[in-house]
Each structure stands twice: as C-alpha cells, then as structure tokens.
Nucleic acid binder design. Structure first.
Length: 469
RNA sequence: GGCGGCGUAGCCGAGUGGCUCAGGCAGAGGUCUGCAAAACCUUUUACGGCGGUUCGAUUCCGCCCGCCGCCUCCA
C-alpha cells in the first residue's frame, strides 16, 4: 500500500509500526459552531480511508478528538450567556449527528481535550525541564521554536521564512515571534485547571499531542487532518511532541484538500460556508459522499449545487440497478439494498482486484467509483440479457466496494398508505391503457412525475418509484 | 515576498511519453415502448499559451497567462 506523506512530499510505501495494525489520529472539530461541508469532506475522506483499511484486513485503531476548550468556545459561551461546557456539549452533539447522517463511522475513541488536561500538563512540564519551553512574564508557558531543529519539516518552511510573516500580539511576551502557547494562564471567568504555573488552560496544539500519544502511542502510524492544519497546528504538534524525547511523533501525515464555495475556501470564521445540516436538507448523504469520492482526497473540491445534482442522478442510477437486479433474482429490493451481502456469492474477482489496486494507490477513490459504475453497468446488462447467473457475483462485488464508499442509498421507508394508493392509481391507468385512452394514461403519468413519482411500464405491469430531486 | 497545488472534451473529474478506452452528469442517434421511462449500444474539434528535450509530449523541462491554498484562527 502506498500513500502520500506530506513531509516526504510524495507517495511512499506504507510500513506499519506493528504488522497488521494501524493506529490513526485525525484532528476533530473545535465544538463552537455547526460543522460545514469542509468538515464533512474531511471526515468523509478519512472515513473512506479508514473503511478501506478495515476492508483490506488491517486492525485499525481510529482516534479523533473534540477540541472542547478554546478561545472561540469561551467567546461563544459569553455571547450566549451559558457555560463553555454547555457550548461544547451542544456542538459535540451537532457534530455527531452530522457525521451519523453522512454515514461516517464513529471513531474507536473520541477523546475530549478537557478530559486529558493532566497528560497535557505532564507534557508541558517535560518540555520546560528539557529547556524547550519557558514561562513568559505574562504567565503563559511558551514553546521555543528555535530549540527544536526540525521546526518546519512538515510544512517545508524555514524559521526565517516563517518569521517574516509572523505576527505578535501585544502582551504575549514571546522571545521569538513564532513561539506558541503550550499553556495559557487563566483570565477572569475562563475555565481553568490547576498546574505548576498556576490555574490555566491548555493551548490548542498540546491537546492533540497528548491525546494522540495516549491513545495511539508514541510513535504512532498515521496522523490526518485538513491541509489548512499543516501550519501551524501540525507543525507545532510535531515540535512539542518530539522536542523533549526525540522520538518521532507520527510516522505518516495525510492531509485532505479544501472545499471551495463560489471560488473561495469555506471557513467558519468568515461565515462563507454551507453547513452540513443545510446541505443535507437539500442533498442525499450518498450524493455528497459520491461527490467526495469522485475527487481525490488531496485535491480541492469546488462545490456547487449543479455538481451534487449530477451525483444525485448517479446515485439514483445505482438504486435503480439494485431494484432491477433484485427483481431479476426474485429478491426483495429493500432487503437487497439494506444488506447486499444477502446474495451469498464470491465477489467478481476482476472488479475486486481493480478496486484494491485503486485504493492501495494512495486511496484512489475516483478510480474506485469507476469500478463501482462498471459493475452497475455490467449488472444492468446482465438483467437486460436475462443472464442472471452472473448477477450474484456482481452484486457481491458492489456490496464489497460499497462497504467502503457507502453510496448505495438505503431503501426508502415503506409507506403502505402510499403503496395502496399507487396500486389503485396504476390499476385505473392500466384500464385506460387497455381502452387505448392514452391521453388519460399519460396525464396520470405526467401528474405523478410532477409529484416526484416515476412510472415505468413493463411487460410485467407498471412499476413506480419515488425519484430523488 | 516565501512554500505548495491546479488549469483535460458541454459540465465535473481520473490518468498516461507512443498502444481501444477512466468514470459520472448532460446532449445526440439507435434498440425496446402505444408514447415514454429505465436499461443497453453508438456518439460529441480533450488535454491554458509559447518554447525546449525526444523518433514521438496532454504526459518530462523552462518561461508566460489564469485560478486556488498555506504563511494569522481555520477541516
């Protein structure tokens, strides 16, 4: 298996720390606002990667945190007149719900920063002892970037280059403009924890260093996140994790591309974004996942309604195929879509080989979707030719590929009242057709289409189904 | 200014030094149908510009143009 490693600036062969095992840490959300499609893309991208690793037989430990103590959370709490903890818990739930709806698997461990302050304090202490950190006159504990030789190795910047663009806020008392806070002294009314340097709270970067080491080990295999976290967040994680003991922090770094909306990056801070909730009100989770999978995870994704509409049509096509195949095999369509593995058959070997080859090459999901659509086309062709013998192997392969992609839509919830009404309507329409009253038959079909129900005539009688938009 | 990415057919989006091709969506024609739909088959001046390397470049190199990201909180 090969993957693109950010510090190596290229695709490298993956070698696990322990054979058969992969420990993975992906930076989770700061829970102060609803997540947007940028977060969704990042989460779906890593979900695709994780599901594939599991599919490929790795024993994966997937850890993703909640940053639940932060300036923005505190500011939000102040604005709303509630506690910081209340804000964090609220948006944690919003995040979980969004992830569930996007069919993103929950992490094996989802640690909260506030539950790991002790480990952070211990890490800061060791950095102070090793001379990599100092207590500033303002009472903060700062990391001295010049004390760490490798600073800049992830983002490929020299300290000099970075220095030129660095800003210093008044009152920070930094020895170097690039030095960053490991521990912030408590201000009036802020959440705080006891420490050797007085009450305070952890800096942003230290939590990930502490939690990743706690749950994934030191070192661990793969660290992931959005590409906008490369600097300074991940660069700083490396510095503070490696400076004290010289042990490598994460062995491979994976970064996902940004999502653009109308030509500019989505960003919570600028208000230029489409929330996951709003997106899901208009588009199906499967269409959003397909859109994400059809673009390589490292590339920028330019989001637009027209784009999801395309994906929606493609997802619809997969759903239609499932129904046709189920009928051809005499299976219940809903059961087939809910549990495609019902067709107990060996997945078609050629497709599986193509799928694995694609995913082993830096998680090439665009090629994997091509494999899926090739299977859909072959399954449809088999139904057309009435060659159902090869169908189970094709469906098993589709199920296998979809165990990673998760783009086959689940069956619509059964609405028996609608089904009864439709039975009557189609019966009346059939009577009109038999009487060659095609005007009436077509009018019924057209009106149903307007109501979002398509009607298809076939030798076995008319079939109907609800259309996605 | 420093670091990095991208520019591929109507749209989105993979990929490759020459060989038949990614894939999806849309459009056109065909099969099927009372007409449709679905499905299948066929199909639509493709590789930003200018040079260079090469027997041969969309693919490698250089320059230019355009777009985007990071360098500050950010998925």
């Amino acid at each position: 298996m090969r993957l693109y490693d950010t510090p190596a600036r290229g695709v490298v062969e993956f070698e696990p720390l322990r054979p058969g095992h992969i420990s993975m840490y992906v930076c989770g959300p700061t829970v102060y606002a609803p997540p947007h499609l940028g977060h969704g893309r990042m989460a779906i991208s890593f979900d695709l990667i994780r599901r594939y690793l599991v599919f490929a037989g790795w024993d994966v430990k997937f850890v993703s945190n909640y940053t639940d103590v932060d300036d923005k959370i505190i500011a939000r709490a102040r604005d709303e007149g509630v506690s910081a903890d209340a804000v964090a818990r609220k948006y944690e739930a919003v995040w979980d719900d969004a992830m569930r709806r996007l069919r993103v698997m929950p992490p094996d461990v989802a640690p909260r920063a506030t539950d790991h302050v002790g480990a952070m304090v211990a890490l800061v202490e060791s950095l102070v002892e090793s001379g990599n950190a100092y207590v500033s006159t303002s009472g903060d504990v700062l990391f001295s970037v010049r004390s760490f030789d490798g600073y800049g190795k992830l983002s490929h910047q020299s300290i000099e280059d970075l220095d030129a663009g660095a800003r210093v806020e008044p009152g920070e008392h930094k020895r170097d403009p690039l030095d960053f806070a490991l521990w912030k002294a408590a201000k009036e009314g802020e959440p705080s924890w006891p420490s050797p340097w007085g009450p305070g709270r952890p800096g942003w970067h230290i939590e990930c260093s502490a939690m990743a080491a706690t749950y994934c080990g030191h070192p661990f295999d793969i660290h992931g996140g959005g590409s906008d976290l490369i600097f300074p967040h991940h660069e700083n994680e490396i510095a503070q994790s490696e400076a004290a003991d010289g042990v490598v922090f994460a062995r491979y770094w994976l970064h996902t591309g940004m999502v653009n909306l109308e030509g500019a990056k989505m960003s919570k801070s600028t208000g230029h974004f489409l929330s996951i909730e709003d997106a899901l009100a208009r588009y199906s989770p499967e269409a959003i996942r397909l859109l994400v999978a059809q673009t390589h995870y490292r590339n920028q994704l330019d989001f637009s309604p027209a784009l999801v509409a395309d994906s929606e049509a493609a997802v619809d096509r997969i759903a239609t195929m499932c129904e046709r195949a189920a009928e051809a095999l005499g299976l219940d369509a809903a059961t087939l879509r809910a549990a495609p593995a019902i067709v107990a058959a060996e997945p078609e070997a050629g497709a599986m080989a193509a799928f694995q080859a694609a995913m082993d090459d830096d998680f090439h999901t665009p090629a994997a979707t091509a494999v899926l659509f090739d299977l859909v086309k072959r399954a449809n062709a088999a139904v057309d030719r009435d060659e159902t013998a090869e169908l189970p192997a094709l469906l098993a392969a589709i199920a296998a590929v979809d165990s990673v992609l998760q783009v086959v839509p689940p069956p619509a919830r059964g609405d028996t009242a609608l089904a009864d009404v439709m039975e009557l309507v189609l019966e009346l329409r059939q009577r009109a057709r038999e009487e060659k009253d095609y005007a009436t038959a077509d009018r019924i079909r057209d009106r149903l289409a307007e109501a979002g129900i398509s009607v298809e005539d076939s030798p076995e009688g008319a079939k109907w189904r609800r259309r996605r938009r």
